[in-house]
């Protein structure tokens, strides 16, 4: 309807070109991941000449590689769970009540996204070492709360403000205790918002490397850190690097697939 109103049948060309631009580097990475390092350095070709799965085989048979993926997935999921769980009641408080210092608190939460992580890495290392949490999944999951909780509160607050207050009042009159109302009635109402918040928490925790790398050495080392160290120790194994990079995209792709309807619908519902 929109397209016909403007009378432009070529509107799709803009998103189309943009998506082509987005896919080009990804295609190149994928292309390299099926080549041997010799071929990458020796010949230039748009498709692998000697198609090989050796790079992927190397990753799936070497525990230092695949454990990296497992480690990353563990702390990302724990972090998403913690962030969304604690952000829900807080976002409710911000959207429904006025209390002492509420606006300042809200802005303070947001300021935590502004701190330059690069320099906070060292204090983080000292803090978590002092607590004997160094090189554990929970340390990374907790550290990532720094930027994920504010974001989750922010997103959820927008969604909750879109729910009319009459819903709360009706439940109250019907004699629902607060927690029962919150869990049974309110949360299902903002399910889309929870989906969007979880998506963003997953995303920012999955892509963050600096803190994750600082807080881990062996047992909880994330895949992204495994990549940097392998690359420097054994020269440049470009094919292996490309395969590992390609594999880091898969969890993200799966998450997007599951929330694809929430993104379209959820974003539309929330004030964002």
């Amino acid at each position: 309807m929109m397209a016909s109103r403007h009378g432009t049948g070529f509107k799709w060309i803009v998103p189309f070109l943009y998506i082509v631009f987005l896919m080009l580097p990804i295609y190149w990475l994928l292309n390299m991941s099926f080549k041997t390092t010799n071929e990458i350095l020796g010949t230039f070709s748009l498709f692998p000449q000697e198609f090989t799965l050796d790079n992927y085989k190397a990753i799936f048979t070497d525990p230092t590689w695949y454990n990296g993926y497992i480690n990353s997935l563990i702390y990302v999921c724990v972090n998403t769970l913690i962030s969304v769980t604690v952000a829900l009641p807080a976002a409710y408080a911000f959207s429904r009540y006025r209390f002492l210092g509420d606006k300042h608190l809200f802005f303070w939460l947001l300021t935590n996204r502004m701190a330059p992580a690069a320099v906070f890495a060292l204090p983080f290392f000292q803090l978590y070492s002092a607590l004997n949490l160094f090189d554990t999944h929970i340390a990374v999951a907790l550290a990532h709360c720094l930027f994920n909780i504010p974001l989750a509160v922010w997103i959820l607050e927008g969604f909750m403000s879109g729910v009319p207050k009459e819903l709360d009042e009706t439940a109250y009159i019907d004699g629902y205790p607060f927690w029962k109302f919150f869990l049974k009635i309110f949360l299902p109402t903002i399910a889309a918002g929870i989906g969007v918040a979880a998506f963003f928490c997953f995303m920012f925790s999955w892509v963050e490397l600096l803190l994750a790398k600082t807080l881990t050495s062996v047992d909880a080392k994330p895949i992204a850190a495994v990549m940097t160290r392998t690359a420097s120790s054994s020269g440049y194994e470009l094919g292996l690097l490309a395969a590992a990079g390609t594999l880091t995209m898969i969890p993200g792709a799966i998450v997007i697939f599951f929330v694809r309807n929430y993104i379209a619908k959820g974003f539309a519902l929330g004030r964002v």
């Binding site: 987005l22 896919m23 999955w206 892509v207 895949i223 995209m249 997007i256 993104i263």
Partner: peptide
């Protein structure tokens, strides 16, 4: 469109 466009956001930064 949404799924494809969200791809770059979900790739670790060093990758």
């Amino acid at each position: 469109c949404l799924v494809l466009m969200a791809m770059p956001l979900l790739i670790p930064w060093n990758v």
